[in-house]
C-alpha cells in the first residue's frame, strides 16, 4: 500500500472545514466592510514587512554570528593535545585556572559518581608540588559553542586529599529556526536538516603535573589518564 498518500488525508478534513467557514453566511450584524478589510490587511502587510526588515537587521548584527563556531575538529584537537600532554598547543582561553598545591608522598583522590576527566603527568623530579591546570567544560551543539553556559565546580584540595564534587546541574534551551522547507525547492542554498542535530560535551578537565614518585590512591573504578611524553 502506498502510505505516502495518507499524508494528504488532512487535506480531506481541513479543506471542507475551511470552505464551510468561508462560505457566504447569513448576514450577521457585524461584518467588516471593504474599507476596514483593506485597512486590516494593509496593517498586516506592513507588520510583516517591518518584521522582515527588523529580522534582517538583527540577522546581520547578531544572528549570523550569534555563537562562536566550534567544530568537531577543534574539539578533537583539544582532546588529543590533552592526551599528548601538549598543553601549550591548547588555546589559553580554555584554561579556567592554574593552581599549585604542596603534597607529601601520597595523593588521595575522592570522587563521586560523575568522574571528571583527569590527566596525570609525572614530572622528572620530586619537588613536592602538584601543578594543577583546569580546563573549562565543553558543550557544542550544532557546531556552536555553548561551553560558557555549562556549570562546573572546581576540585577541592585539603592537605593530601583532592575531592572531585558532583558537577552541578545545567539546563540549556535553544531555538532553531528555518524558513519554509517547501520553498527551498529552487534556492541556491539547499535547505539543511535543522533542529537538534549533534552535540559534543564534556565536563571540566583536570590536568595534574605531579612529582615523579607520588603515590596516587583512588577508588578502583576511578579512571585516570596517565600521560607519558
Amino acid at each position: 500500500m502506498n502510505l505516502s498518500i495518507l499524508i494528504l488525508l488532512p487535506f480531506l478534513i481541513v479543506i471542507p472545514i475551511i470552505v464551510y467557514i468561508m462560505r457566504p453566511k447569513k448576514p450577521s450584524k457585524w461584518t467588516m466592510n471593504k474599507k476596514w478589510t483593506y485597512v486590516f490587511f494593509a496593517t498586516y502587510t506592513a507588520v510583516l514587512l517591518l518584521a522582515a526588515l527588523t529580522v534582517e537587521l538583527f540577522d546581520k548584527k547578531l544572528a549570523t554570528k550569534p555563537f562562536n563556531h566550534f567544530s568537531t575538529e577543534d574539539f578533537k584537537f583539544i582532546e588529543s593535545a590533552l592526551h599528548l600532554g601538549n598543553l601549550s598547543a591548547i588555546d589559553p582561553s580554555q584554561v579556567i585556572d592554574k593552581r599549585t598545591h604542596d603534597v607529601g608522598d601520597t595523593l588521595h583522590i575522592k570522587s563521586y559518581d560523575n568522574n571528571p576527566l583527569v590527566f596525570i603527568e609525572r614530572k622528572s623530579e620530586n619537588d613536592g608540588w602538584i601543578e594543577e591546570t583546569l580546563f573549562k567544560p565543553i558543550l557544542i551543539i550544532n557546531e556552536a559553542d555553548f561551553s560558557d553556559q555549562v556549570n562546573y565546580t572546581k576540585p577541592e584540595w585539603e592537605g593530601d586529599t583532592v575531592t572531585f564534587p558532583v558537577p552541578p546541574f545545567t539546563e540549556l534551551t535553544f531555538t532553531s529556526y528555518q524558513d519554509s522547507l517547501l520553498l527551498g525547492q529552487f534556492t541556491r542554498q539547499p535547505p539543511k536538516e535543522f533542529g537538534y542535530r549533534e552535540r559534543q560535551s564534556r565536563q571540566i578537565v583536570i590536568y595534574l603535573h605531579v612529582p615523579k614518585d607520588l603515590i596516587i590512591k583512588a577508588n578502583e573504578d576511578f579512571d585516570i589518564n596517565y600521560v607519558n611524553k
Partner: peptide, 21 residues
C-alpha cells in the same frame, strides 16, 4: 544527569501550508 538540553524548532512551513490551503 547533569546536563539537559531543550530545543524548539520553528519554521515558516505552516504559514506556507495554510496559505496553500
Amino acid at each position: 544527569e547533569s546536563l539537559t538540553i531543550n530545543w524548539r524548532s520553528l519554521s515558516g512551513d505552516m504559514a506556507v501550508i495554510f496559505t496553500l490551503f
